[in-house]
Computed example of a mutant assay.
Amino acid sequence: MRRIVVVGASAAGLSAAETLRREGYDASLTLIGEEIELPYDRPPLSKQILAGEWAAERLALRTLDQLTALRLDLRLGVRAVGLDPAARIVRLGDGTEVPYDGLIVATGVRPRRLAGDGGHVLRRVTDALALRERLAPGVRLAVVGAGFLGAECAAVARGLGCEVVLLEPAPVPLAHAVGERVGRVLSAAHTEHGVDLRTGVAVTAITGDGVQLAGGERVTADEVLVAIGSRPNTEWLESSGLPVDDGLICDEYSRAAPDVYAAGDVARWHNPRYGVAMRIEHRTNAAEQGLAAARNLLHPGAGKPFAPVPYFWSDQYDLKIHAYGYLRGHDTVEITEGDLGERRFLATYRRAGRLVGVLAAGLPPKALRPWRQALLTQEES
């Protein structure tokens, strides 16, 4: 294998490239990224960058010197538009073709949008900076979607003195992931901080003065942020013959086809620890899967299944939330420590009696360590 191409220059792609060099691969290594910026970290976009606490330069994952040391054929500001697995060629938007012996797909996701003109999304550093310029005391911001991204942005906007209306179609925000009781507790933090939280409402379009709801009602706002989820960037693979269904379908080794692997938000792979296919949009998973995919590409005969315990965190107001495991699909939730009413608690999640996840709010991360170890030591499904 003398030519490896990594498509996607964010956390997963960078992790894969660094792992390839660290594992001794010394031949041609091409890293392709659609954005013009050097690889940067995304979680701070909805926190420190939106709040104006960090300069954009602080997001950089590596310096230019560090990237140079990897001896990359670095191609930024160009997107992949097609793949021919038979010829082993990646086609780029600038008309060039990049041949490969091994390929790692790490093209991530893009935000879902609503009908109508205007509105902000938050995925790139340019998105965060553009929204930050519009947020000032007294500005009325409508946030569509009360998931973790929407909730974090609502909290930051309130901290900047904005009026915030948070619109969510579900009766209880985040209930599908963390359960109704925990979802209600996390939502209460917003109402206590003056957010106008409206649940059970569907937004159909962005208007010139806000948003329109399914029943015809309009909610006025100076600015609108759409945080209703994302779509995997797999369109460039549609004619490739590779399996695509809400992500690039991979086996337990993160392999989609011979010598083709995927990592990060775009990968839907079989996690043998939980016995299900999953696609995880968390920063730590991106880096870990980039590493695993690179190793398995280099050493397919000695490949190891990628079976992580997923981890995510969220900051909302003064509340810090940490979680391990795969909480979706749980059937029981137990508060094993602290008190929900005080928003200082630890909840465990089980499916068919088996521990599948744990979430802590208002507690130090060390409170989760024994539970993380319990999740790691359980037998795989």
Rank of each mutant, 00 (worst) to 15 (best):
P169M: 04
E133D: 15
V139I: 14
V143I: 09
A157Q: 05
G150V: 10
R75V: 00
S46Y: 04
V139K: 13
S254I: 15
V182S: 05
Q48T: 09
G329V: 11
Y100F: 15
R79D: 04
R132F: 08
W236N: 02
E180N: 12
Q289W: 00
T234W: 05
L14V: 01
L160Q: 05
G301R: 05
A157L: 07
E152K: 15
A360M: 12
I280T: 03
L76K: 05
A262V: 07
R134S: 09
D259S: 13
M1V: 02
P85Y: 10
L160C: 03
G303W: 01
W313H: 02
Y349T: 04
T107C: 06
I32T: 04
R71Y: 12
L340C: 03
T204D: 12
R354Y: 15
R279D: 04
P85H: 07
R134E: 10
V98N: 12
A214M: 11
V165E: 01
Q373S: 11
A202D: 11
L291Y: 03
C250S: 02
L363S: 11
F148Y: 13
A170E: 04
R354E: 09
Q378H: 06
V309K: 06
L363T: 05
C153E: 05
E281F: 09
D94E: 10
Y274N: 11
Y253E: 10
T348P: 12
D246I: 10
A277P: 13
S240F: 01
K304T: 09
L327W: 02
T204M: 11
A154Q: 02
E379D: 07
A294K: 01
A361R: 07
R184C: 03
G93Q: 14
G325D: 04
P39I: 01
A374G: 14
L83Q: 09
A227M: 14
E37F: 15
L197Q: 04
V6C: 02
A293S: 02
E252Y: 06
S230Y: 12
L375I: 05
G247P: 02
G216E: 08
R79M: 11
L174W: 07
Y349V: 06
A347T: 11
I49S: 01
E133Q: 13
R21Q: 00
V164M: 01
P111G: 09
L237F: 00
